[in-house]
């Protein structure tokens, strides 16, 4: 069953097209890796899907709701971790989580916060001020705020950016567990190809606002010779795209 349906989606900043006629379907239970260079239009897509930005053409549905006409319902069903997530530095981790949980309509705040922190194996930091947190710790609280209200779809924008190798490994495990144990569909922007191969179930490649490749990871690996890496695939579709143009 499709959880994200994108139809002819486009966005322009003035005269500059950031996204062009994007058509895409993400099925329930998938971990979808959205690949592309910087400026390819990945963040614009996430901004539209999370209702932070209104597209200039086309439609998008998330969890069965239209992102423009039913934006509130969309937001009730999603969680979002922006790139370089930030919080109120003067408040503790607990206070930050409580604030965002309340805005999502969560009622049993304390119970939910500890449940999420347990899931992330991150108990004991809740009374520390966010200003004292490292980048990796912030990222965990970032995930906690994104899942505290048990969303159907989780959007992650470059979640591994700025993390050390250990942090990346931990995050990868968390993403897979969220998908398996909490049945969340995950839409992840990244430019790290190795990440996609290790966590995602299907991929899409975006280049200068155009979707140039979209298939399951399994099929992708079947289509290309076994010795080919994902990097080769990426290079191949980029070249093909240039030829078509």
């Amino acid at each position: 069953m499709p959880v994200i349906k994108i139809n002819g989606l486009g966005h322009r900043y003035g005269n500059q097209a950031a996204l062009n006629n994007l058509n895409l379907i993400v099925l329930e239970g998938e971990i979808f890796g959205f690949l592309g260079h910087n400026g390819a239009g990945k963040t614009t897509t996430i901004n539209i899907l999370t209702t932070l930005l209104t597209q200039t053409s086309g439609t998008a549905e998330v969890a069965g709701f239209n992102t423009i006409s039913q934006s509130r319902q969309v937001r009730q069903n999603i969680g979002y971790l922006p790139e370089n997530v930030m919080f109120y530095d003067n408040l503790t981790a607990f206070e930050n989580l409580a604030f965002f949980a309340k805005l999502s309509g969560v009622t049993d705040i304390e119970e939910k916060i500890f449940e999420v922190l347990d899931f992330l194996d991150f108990r004991g930091i809740e009374n520390k001020k966010m200003g004292e947190f490292s980048k990796g710790m912030r990222q965990r609280i970032g995930i906690a705020q994104a899942i505290i209200h048990k969303p159907k779809v989780l959007f992650l924008d470059e979640p591994t950016s700025g993390l050390d190798p250990m942090g990346i490994k931990n995050l990868r495990e968390i993403i897979i567990r969220l998908n398996k144990e909490k049945n969340m569909t995950i839409f992840m922007n990244t430019h790290l190809l190795s990440e996609v191969a290790l966590t995602c179930t299907s991929i899409g490649v975006l280049s200068r606002g155009h979707l140039i490749y979209n298939d399951t990871l399994e099929n992708t690996l079947k289509k290309f010779p076994s010795e080919a890496s994902l990097e080769d695939i990426y290079e191949h579709v980029e070249k093909t795209a240039k030829k078509i143009k």
Partner: peptide
């Protein structure tokens, strides 16, 4: 200004807040 600088606005407006 605090909200703009701390970058929490995307977190707030990706929730059901008008």
């Amino acid at each position: 200004i605090r909200e703009r600088k701390s970058g929490v606005l995307p977190l707030i407006f990706s929730r059901p807040v008008g």
